[in-house]
Amino acid sequence: MHASTMLASLATLAIAHLLACASPGPSFIFVAQSAASRSRRAGLLAALGMSAGAAVWAAGALLGLAALFERVAELYRVAQIAGGLYLVYIAYRIAQHAKDPLPAPGSAPPTSDARIFLGAMRVQLANPKVSVFFASIFITVLPREASLAFRLAVLLMVIVDETLWYSFVATVLSTSRARTIYGRFKTAADRITGAFLGLLGFRLVLQGARAVK
């Protein structure tokens, strides 16, 4: 593959992926809520968790996981229902603690770093449509003769894109001004966040259940 073709393909993939990252969804909401309600550290850990989850789906797409989902529809539906149920659980947890006050800046977080990271990663993994998105982009842009080195470069690009975007979100929404604004409307904001994630989760579950029938 010519270097110019490789660079053009990587640039196209990077732009398409960044636009997808920037669109509102459960990943954005989870990182934003973590940063505004806890701390910049929590937001950055959530950003890394999202990056890890995206890397899993991207690697799966590069290895043909989306093709497997297409061939074995039941496997995709199981992943869809399981992911939807997890989003509903996350929504319940956020709504359950909607009235809790914000932790004081610099205080010990009530949730461990590992739980924040793994929670974010699970939110990203909860939606198998992410794998389908990567597969569609890769099929459209990725050259058929792409080498292993190029595919690894694509995977690295996904990780960098995800980390940079969600770190930016975490940094902006963890500022003292953002925390002050969030604190004024925390209960309502958390309930809206929970409702949004819950609806997304129910939608995934219903879509999966209808397809199984």
Rank of each mutant, 00 (worst) to 15 (best):
K213W: 09
A79H: 08
A95C: 00
V31G: 05
A35T: 05
A79K: 12
V172E: 01
A58S: 11
Y86M: 06
A82K: 02
M1H: 15
G43F: 01
R38C: 13
G60M: 08
T171P: 07
A114G: 06
P103F: 05
I116C: 05
F150K: 02
A36T: 01
R122V: 12
R179G: 01
R38K: 11
L199E: 03
H2R: 08
A95Y: 01
L148Y: 11
S107L: 08
S9A: 11
V88C: 14
V130S: 07
A58P: 11
L10W: 08
A20I: 07
I159D: 00
G83Y: 07
S23F: 11
A42G: 04
L102I: 05
V132R: 09
S131K: 03
F133Y: 08
L142G: 10
A46P: 01
G84I: 06
A79S: 10
A188W: 12
A120C: 05
A32S: 00
L197R: 09
S4T: 14
A20S: 11
A209F: 10
A3R: 12
V130M: 10
A209L: 10
A126R: 06
L62V: 09
A20F: 09
L156Y: 07
L155Q: 02
P26R: 04
I192K: 11
P24K: 00
R77C: 06
S9V: 09
M157F: 03
V154C: 05
F196P: 12
Y182H: 04
A195C: 11
E70G: 12
S39M: 02
G84M: 07
P143V: 13
E70Y: 10
S107N: 14
A22S: 00
R210Y: 13
D190Q: 00
L142N: 10
V160Y: 04
L199R: 07
K186A: 15
L87N: 13
A146Q: 06
A11P: 10
G25P: 09
P143K: 15
P101A: 05
F196M: 15
V160G: 08
I159S: 03
L142H: 05
T5S: 14
V56A: 04
A61Y: 12
A8I: 08
S174H: 00
A46R: 00
A32I: 04
L204G: 08
R122G: 09
N127E: 09
S107H: 11
R122D: 08
L75D: 13
A170I: 04
Y166D: 04
L18N: 01
L125Q: 03
S51A: 06
L173N: 02
K99G: 05
T171Q: 06
V88I: 15
G119Y: 01
V141P: 07
R77Q: 12
T175A: 01
G60V: 14
P105C: 06
S34A: 12
S39F: 00
L164Y: 02
L155H: 03
M6H: 13
L204H: 06
A11T: 15
M50G: 01
V88T: 13
T111M: 03
G183I: 08
R144C: 14
T163Q: 03
R93E: 09
P110C: 08
L102A: 07
A189F: 09
S176L: 03
S112F: 06
V212N: 10
L148I: 11
L197E: 14
T187H: 02
M1T: 14
G43H: 00
S112P: 07
F196K: 13
L118N: 04
L65R: 02
L63C: 13
A11N: 11
A55E: 10
